[in-house]
């Protein structure tokens, strides 16, 4: 019982991390049809900068972590907005080129990060409490999972609120469904593109700092490895669906945890099988709809 609970909550914690990356991917694809392979780099850069600033302010404390998270969010948002404005916008509606550019950016930035911070992971200090566990019904849950779950839930809530309550949220929801018709109502949808990139980048940036807490390290390839799972989550959830991404993130991470524990470390295989199963039964993903671009 306690093992199941431990795997479950740990899984949800990891799912929270996946969601922070996948939410942006899904919104960006949903609105613009762009598969953003540079998304992992937003995460990694935010992880590094958040750590660099946080440790200088106050290493291994809550204050340092909080500063790091804020820096990470800002870094992710700015990096993503610049990427959209400088690279993606010029290739409006040219999807192959967009993919090539984001793949190129992803590869080049990892090399750049290795050049600056080295290719070996750097251990980081975190607030003591996050390294401890809390006993829930006999299961010793690592405390950092609570932080991850809380942050992801907050991000989900904020994005939903933004989409539901603001004019740009309305434009984005409409644009995910039928972008051409949004422009045919006289709306310059490109501004919404930049906003979606910035929101996705901010979430990934927060994910970058939290990933460094989760893994206890920052590394040049941290974003890239998370990006793979985030893409799987995005596809399973349904490209363009935020709630789909949230559900799929938890599902994928929990399946991964259970398979790793009970089926001899086959977590990654189980995730790929889950992906295949969903694609066979419902090719548009759990909550995905057909969209018109």
């Amino acid at each position: 019982m306690s093992t199941i609970l431990l795997l479950l909550i740990t899984g949800v914690g990891l799912g929270a991390l996946y969601f922070l990356v996948a939410s942006g991917l899904s919104l960006i694809y949903g609105l613009m049809g762009v598969l953003n392979f540079a998304h992992g780099s937003f995460l990694t850069l935010a992880g590094f900068l958040g750590w660099e600033v946080g440790r200088r302010v106050s290493d291994g404390t809550w204050a340092g972590l909080l500063i790091g998270m804020l820096v990470g969010i800002a870094t992710g948002a700015i990096a993503a907005a610049i990427t959209e404005l400088v690279f993606i916008r010029k290739l409006y509606n040219r999807h192959i080129e967009q993919v090539l550019v984001t793949v190129g950016l992803g590869l080049a930035t990892v090399a750049l990060f290795e050049g600056i911070w080295g290719s070996d992971p750097i251990r980081i200090a975190k607030p003591a409490w996050l390294g401890q566990t809390t006993n829930i019904l006999g299961a010793n849950i690592p405390n950092d999972r609570w932080l991850l779950i809380g942050c992801a839930a907050l991000v989900l809530g904020l994005i939903v609120l933004f989409l539901k309550k603001t004019k740009y949220g309305l434009i984005i929801r409409a644009g995910v469904e039928n972008r051409t018709m949004v422009t045919a109502l006289g709306i310059d949808v490109r501004r919404a593109f930049t906003i979606v990139f910035a929101i996705g980048g901010a979430a990934a940036g927060l994910g970058g700092v939290l990933a460094s807490v989760y893994y206890g390290q920052v590394a040049a390839h941290q974003g890239t490895s998370l990006l793979i799972y985030a893409f799987i989550v995005t596809v399973i959830g349904g490209l363009g669906s935020l709630s789909g991404a949230a559900i799929a993130a938890v599902l994928v991470a929990v399946i991964q945890q259970f398979a790793n524990f009970y089926l001899g470390g086959t977590g990654d295989l189980a995730v790929v099988l889950a992906l295949a199963a969903v694609l066979l039964v419902k090719p548009t993903g759990l909550l995905g709809k057909k969209t018109t671009h």
Partner: peptide, 22 residues
């Protein structure tokens, strides 16, 4: 397109194209 429409030309497309999820 958006500038053409902003000039004052309204478009009612074939097959309506309302936003079904809104």
């Amino acid at each position: 397109t958006h500038r053409v429409v902003q000039r004052g030309i309204g478009y009612v497309p074939e097959d309506r194209e309302v936003f079904g999820s809104l």
